[in-house]
Design a binder for these strands. Sequence first.
DNA 1: TTGTAATTTATAATAATTCTAAACTTTATG
DNA 2: CATAAAGTTTAGAATTATTATAAATTACAA
Lengths: 142, 142
Amino acid sequence: MSKNNDFIEKLRSSGLRPTKQRLKICEALFDRDHTFHFTINDLAKNISEELKERISLATVYNTVHAFKTKGYLKEISINSDKSYFDTNTTNHHHFFDEDTNELIDCNEEVIETPKIKKNILGKKINSVEVLVKVATDNQNQK
Amino acid sequence: MSKNNDFIEKLRSSGLRPTKQRLKICEALFDRDHTFHFTINDLAKNISEELKERISLATVYNTVHAFKTKGYLKEISINSDKSYFDTNTTNHHHFFDEDTNELIDCNEEVIETPKIKKNILGKKINSVEVLVKVATDNQNQK
DNA sequence: TTGTAATTTATAATAATTCTAAACTTTATG
DNA sequence: CATAAAGTTTAGAATTATTATAAATTACAA
């Protein structure tokens, strides 16, 4: 349970009270070997089915937004009926498979972050994201 | 009204019947000096208020999706409660101003399209889009 | 002209998300 | 330790974009 103390520290250091619910959500999101993508529904389902905890859907929404604001999560810029989040907050890019609607991470070795030669006056660049849409190659169809 | 015949030809050539409604939507979208971004609501409002035509909202949805499928429109990959479309179907990128929620086009001279060094096996790359998020620079705040 | 397939339409259904206000928790302070 | 204020959780209602439905209308090939 040393992870738990880390989460308590992390939350406190950003002005969020370490409640039972938030710690459970930290466990679901950050006590993992790999980063991953999720929707609010995925997360709520994981908490109730795997971690056997009852957390109100409103709290899951609130917490994910709080974590996003604090920079613990990134919202993925993909147009969809639902919002997707990423526990990988480092600079990276995505492939989107239009056949399966699957989103695949890819690092700087595969797609180099493009240089921005001119910025909007008076603004700071917060992120540069590349989205590559792919689909089955149907070149031999009518 | 030579534009109108062009639209009729364009629609027919892609297997879409040139109905009154579709031609009006073509006028709203393509009879312009510049490309632009819009939501379904923007478009429906423009048609009823500027072009003084009553087209059912369902038809606007249907038509925009048909036009997207035929490649006459692009859907912008931005996470939002509504979908944004772009009449600029050429390869280009976007700045997103997080202060104002404004989306600004930018061409290849400002952001060079990144090279994709490795692709997903058996898939074809359909598009490569860069999104640069910017906001007011608050570096001198606590 | 006429039958069929495509299209439009109003309206209902769906689903993600946000709002609300009351109950409960956390925490700082006396 | 008691307590009050501020923060948090919660169920359920409200909102809103979008999709589905099915009947009426329109386009067009034969």
